[in-house]
Design a protein around this nucleic acid. Structure first.
Lengths: 183, 183
DNA sequence: TGGTACATGTAACATGTTACATGATTAG
DNA sequence: CTAATCATGTAACATGTTACATGTACCA
C-alpha cells in the first residue's frame, strides 16, 4: 500500500508540520487559508494523506487530545521526504475555468444568459481582489510576515486584476445584455 | 452505468460535434487546440466519455472510416443535453500552481534553487505569451473568426502578462540576484 | 518491406468530490 | 438538556494520468 511517491498535497502537509504537530482538522484549516487559493484540498484528502504518511513513517501520531484530536508530528524521514520534494522542479500550473468553456461555445448560448454568467463571475472576482488587498493592508502580513506569503498574495492580486480587466474589456455581445437573436 | 450527469468535458465534446461528426482522435486534437489552455483533457478521457455518451444516446456511432476511424454524430438528445449544459451557471475556476506551493514554503528551499525554478517558469510563460500573440496576429483568427475565440485568447494574453509581471517584480531573495533582463 | 504516424481502446492507479456516520465538547 | 461546533473517519464514486496492447495505412 505504501509504494507511492510523495505528492504536492502531502508535501504541503509535511511543510506545515515543520512548525509544530498538528491534527487533520488544523491542517485543513491552515492549508485552506494559506495555500487554498492556488492549491485546493478537502478534508477527505487530508485524512487520506495523513493515514498514508503515518503508514510510511513520514509522520508519527502523538497522544490524542481533548476532542479525540489526533496530532501528528514530523519524523526525520518526513523531513527528508519534504526536502526532496522542495528540490523537485515544480510542474506547470493547470487552470480549469468553466466560464471560458461556456464562452468558447458562446455562439450556442443565449446572449443575455452569457452576460449574466460574466456578471456573477465579475462580482466574485471583485470580492476576492478586495479580500486580498485587505490582507495586504494588515501591516503584520507585510512587514514581519515572511516575504513568501507576500509573494503569493501578490500573485493573487495580479491575477484577479487581470481577470477583472479582461471582463471589463469583453466585447459587448459577451459582456452586456444587448439581447439579440438566438441560435 | 448511465445515470450520471453531463460533465463539462463531455459537454465540450458535444459542442464540437455541432459542426460535423468527428472521431475520438479528431476531438482530442480539436479540444487540445481550442480549449486545452483552460480545460485540459487527455485521449483516455475522451474515449471514456464517448463510450458513455454513446451508451446514453447523446451521440451515435457512424460507419467506420479508413483507419478504423470511428466518427460520432450528435443525436437530438445530445443536442438537448448540450443546450441544458450551456444554461448551467459555470462554476468557479480552479488554479493548481505548484510553483506557488514551492514559494509558499520558500523558507525551506535553497534560494538559488528557488530562483532557478522561477527562471524556468518565466521562460515557459514568455513562450506561451508569444504564441498567443502570434495567433492574434493572424488576421483570420480575429476578423472572420468568432469573437468568442478572440475573447478566450485575450484572457490567455492577460493572464500570461500578469504572471510575467509578477515574476519581474518578485523580491530579490526569490528572484535571481542578478537582474530582470528579458527578451 | 519496414518504419512511422494514425487510431482505438483498456487497465491500473492517483487524485478529487460529496455525502454520510459517529462521537466529544461547549455554549446557551 | 439541547443545539451547535469540533473532530475523525469511511464509502462511493467521478475525474485525471500513465502506460500499454493492438491494429491500420502511408510513404520511403
Amino acid at each position: 500500500m505504501s509504494p507511492r511517491r510523495l505528492n504536492a498535497t502531502a508535501a504541503s502537509l509535511l511543510g506545515f508540520l515543520h512548525d509544530e504537530p498538528l491534527t487533520g482538522w488544523d491542517l485543513v484549516a491552515t492549508a485552506q487559508q494559506t495555500i487554498g487559493d492556488f492549491w485546493s484540498l478537502t478534508q477527505s484528502q487530508v485524512y487520506r494523506e495523513l493515514a498514508w504518511m503515518a503508514e510510511a513513517n513520514l509522520i508519527e501520531a502523538r497522544e490524542r487530545g481533548p476532542r479525540h484530536r489526533q496530532p501528528y508530528a514530523l519524523t526525520p524521514a518526513g523531513r527528508r521526504a519534504f526536502a526532496d520534494w522542495t528540490a523537485r522542479e515544480p510542474g506547470p500550473e493547470t487552470i480549469r475555468f468553466p466560464l471560458l468553456l461556456t464562452i468558447s461555445f458562446g455562439r450556442h448560448v443565449a446572449p443575455d444568459r452569457l452576460a449574466g454568467f460574466v456578471r456573477s463571475h465579475h462580482e466574485r472576482h471583485a470580492t476576492r481582489l478586495a479580500s486580498y488587498e485587505a490582507q495586504l493592508a494588515i501591516p503584520a502580513t507585510v512587514e514581519s510576515g515572511d516575504p513568501y506569503r507576500r509573494a503569493t498574495l501578490d500573485f493573487g492580486i495580479r491575477y484577479e486584476q487581470a481577470v477583472l480587466d479582461w471582463f471589463d474589456n469583453l466585447p459587448v455581445p459577451i459582456q452586456s445584455e444587448s439581447a439579440t437573436d438566438e441560435e
